[in-house]
């Protein structure tokens, strides 16, 4: 489903990704760990198609199609979803309205029928309930004045409704207390399915205790330097990146 081949990316003229290779088969959860500044967020922005993240070499194959030339909204409509490390605030636009606009826009790009108001409401309410998001919060302006945990729950809600084929979670666990972490992880786990893959970016093993990955990759210096099973996270937690990477080299 996702195959990144020899990806080189410049951000504002500076090369940040330097030959990244990664393959995520359908239904699998892959974690990416790595030191600060390694290029994890850069990878997620590049996958989502952000302007300013210039692919100078390599390709991103998504279901056999190279998506590097596609606009972000086209990629979203094809099923790429990015849960932001720092979700943005949009004053005056309720979560409800935002979600409806997003779902309808994607349907339109895909040439599908838009949901009617009743269908939409039913879907939102059901998903919100699972994530313990109140009706009141759905009506509040998107992310404005939300706590860190509320923002992350809201990202999970969006993911649940947009039903992506590839969900990239950039530090989903940052700023979450233990209960919120469980709630968000449960939300993610419920969405696991044979035709949906996840790329989970995190610094901590703790998240991976709840969202158990099939493979863990270590990203350093703009490329994947090591891959392994979930025991890799335990090693990292105990010894730190330098030691683990040095041992492998």
């Amino acid at each position: 489903m996702l195959e990144i081949k020899d990806l080189h990316v410049n951000v504002f003229g500076k090369e940040i990704l330097k030959g990244l290779n990664l393959k995520v088969p359908p239904g699998e959860v892959h974690a990416i760990m790595g030191p600060n500044g390694a290029g994890k967020s850069t990878t997620s922005y590049t996958l989502a198609g952000r302007a300013g993240y210039e692919v100078t070499k390599g390709e991103i194959d998504f279901f056999g199609e190279d998506v590097t030339g596609l606009a972000p909204e086209e990629r979203a409509a094809r099923g790429i979803f990015l849960a932001f490390q720092y979700p943005l605030e949009i004053p005056g636009v309720s979560t409800m309205n935002f979600l409806k606009t997003a779902m309808n826009s994607q349907a339109k790009i895909r040439g599908e029928k838009e949901l009617n108001a009743a269908e939409f409401l039913r879907a939102v309410r059901a998903a919100a309930k699972e994530l313990n998001i109140s009706e009141d919060m759905l009506k509040r302006p998107l992310n404005v004045g939300f706590s860190g945990g509320e923002k992350k729950r809201n990202e999970t809600l969006q993911m649940a409704l947009l039903k992506p084929k590839l969900a990239i979670l950039d530090e989903m666990d940052s700023g979450l207390d233990i209960d919120a972490l469980k709630l968000v992880a449960e939300g993610v786990n419920k969405l696991r399915s044979p035709d949906r893959s996840f790329l989970v970016i995190t610094h901590y093993q703790r998240l991976l205790d709840y969202i158990v990955p099939d493979v863990i990759h270590i990203l350093a210096g703009g490329k994947i330097v090591m891959s392994g099973d979930k025991s890799l996270a335990v090693q990292l937690e105990q010894n730190g990146y330098d030691a683990v990477i040095a041992k492998a080299a």
Binding site: E73, F81, F84, P91, S105
Partner: peptide, 23 residues
Amino acid sequence: QLFYCLSRGIPTEEAVSLIVNGF
């Protein structure tokens, strides 16, 4: 803000409209 909207599948002009209407 714009990229956040785009990444959810909302094209630029609609995103601007959404943000301005919110404002």
